[in-house]
Design a protein around this nucleic acid. Structure first.
Lengths: 309, 309
DNA sequence: TATTGCATTTTGTGCATTCAAGATACACAA
DNA sequence: TTGTGTATCTTGAATGCACAAAATGCAATA
């Protein structure tokens, strides 16, 4: 499936394009201009072309001589795993290291080559992974040689921390002066959440569920146009992925969350931003309690004083 | 000054050690054990030893055969520039690129080698700089070749955004359940702020003033022990350094800020965290108005709703 | 006129080698 | 026993070259 000789970038692009074709309701037979994809994906036509070749191999598009590529059939959700295979290598390694670290199988201080040996990966790739982890804030280079893992709070405490943080800034994001809904995006996340309600919750993989959930918050906070908040939500999500990847997922609860997400969108589209902000806060508070086993409110001081500020 | 043959790391360490010796009131003649510094600085004894050699060259410490190094005189503030010289190269380049970009002299999309040529620096170093900028969130790798600069909001708007963000989470940080003062740190920042009031404001360089200001907030937020908030304040500071580096610095206003900082510490030491949080919010609000030219409150919705939540 | 197909140029990565310098181990002095 | 002096081992950065593939320019075609 999907050309083993295609470059990694091409694989990635193929995946993203398939995703795009599936979501953005184009009709079969539509002409797919190379340059447009190139611009949208911030690359040149060359890798786009390769990606289209991959998709052609899978029967998603057809190439007509001198006329380019045309959509042949809307790609099924099943193209995902097939394509992700090619791109997943590095991701897999990332997860393996993350897993080992979270399980305490890696010391606080490690040398680069020790990791290279242990995971049998070339230095370059390891460095990429480490840089990613560094960006996510849980490893640091030591001044001299080697890397240092940050002491992670246990996962319950980490969750509690992240939700307290989110309860502060996510509602605030909705009230930013620069807040502007983008219709196409609203449509997209609304459709996703609705899809989850229509059975998706039980059908999709955990990773996918996580992705859709964080994408929702990402997108909404994105409307604020405040780069600090956008940044913050992305970092929180990165950490959450780490913590929740293997955590228990209560699918019933997700259903409830989807309803709340949809309601939030309703409020925003009505222009009731204050109500929306308040609703967001409650939404997060509920999730927090679920994740952290709750107590009754976890942080009385916070709630009280938040009421004062 | 200070051994041109010392490695860069050694120079850095020498700088940090000098700083430490100056602050942490050791008495002349004190024995400086290598291993302690090594542990504190997260490196092996080798570079520490080199750094000590540098400091010996400058007359700050003396080496006695088979007994190690001893403090000879408390390093004056003037050692800073002398030592920083060695470490400043990369920093200087970083600032030059940052400057060019902020002034609009660099396009949104750039290729790596184009930058290499333009700034006449080796790839490795350029990449380090770019990675740093990436961590700070204002450049990204493109999927294929090249880098892409994020569209920065103009500096007034960026300031406004950052302060709105900070007004949300900094007060909240003071109310975190895990909030614990660390006496030695409190002492340190109190002394720094006091020093500023005692004339430092007029004596020190802008860069140094900035550093002391952000160090204050860093430290205080650090007491929260909430890694998300600690992370957030660091990112905000990185961006502020960028924006303010060349900005106008009103030294009189800084005096006022120092007083507020000291008052905040008083409140915290009395255990009045709620009052402290409220005070912090006002403190930031005042600074925000100064920086952004203000209007009367910039964001009524925020203030009002904050009052509700 | 816009877009494809293809050829050419340019870029950045991979890899092997080399070397400065950071980490480590151990003998010896205080 | 603790900490220095020093020799040895190991690490990771620098360098140069070859190559895959991304960017770009241009003729051909709908």
């Amino acid at each position: 499936m999907g050309r083993s000789d295609a470059s990694e970038l091409a694989q990635q692009l193929a995946l993203r394009m398939a995703e795009y074709l599936r979501r953005s309701g184009l009709t079969v037979g539509a002409h797919l201009a190379e340059q447009q994809f190139a611009d949208a994906l911030k690359v040149s036509r060359t890798p786009v072309r390769r990606a289209l070749a991959v998709l052609a191999d899978m029967g998603v598009v057809v190439q007509e001589p001198n006329r380019g590529y045309f959509l042949r059939k809307i790609p099924a959700a099943s193209v995902r795993p097939a394509l992700a295979e090619g791109t997943g290598l590095s991701e897999e390694r990332y997860l393996r290291i993350a897993d080992d670290r979270l399980a305490g199988r890696i010391e606080d201080h490690v040398t680069e080559t020790a990791l290279m040996r242990r995971y049998a990966m070339p230095r370059r790739e390891l460095q990429r992974v480490l840089h990613r982890m560094e960006k996510e804030g849980w490893v640091e280079r030591k001044p001299g040689h080697g890397w240092m893992f940050a002491a992670l709070p246990d996962s319950v405490e980490a969750h509690a921390q992240s939700y307290r943080f989110r309860m502060m800034f996510e509602p605030a994001a909705l009230l930013e002066p620069g807040f502007r809904l983008v219709d196409s995006e609203v449509k997209r996340i609304r459709r996703d959440q609705q899809m989850l309600l229509d059975g998706g919750v039980h059908r999709l993989s955990r990773a996918r569920l996580f992705e859709l959930g964080s994408d929702f918050h990402n997108t909404v906070i994105g409307f604020s146009n405040n780069r600090f908040m956008i940044d913050a939500i992305q970092r929180v999500n990165a950490m959450r992925r780490l913590l929740e990847y293997r955590a228990h997922y209560d699918r019933e609860r997700i259903t409830g969350q989807c309803r709340e997400h949809l309601h939030l969108l309703d409020l925003l589209e009505q222009g009731s931003r204050r109500e929306a902000a308040e609703f967001m806060r409650k939404h997060l508070d509920v999730v927090r309690e679920q994740k952290t086993g709750g107590g009754r409110s976890g942080n009385d001081a916070l709630n009280t004083v938040t009421a004062q500020l």
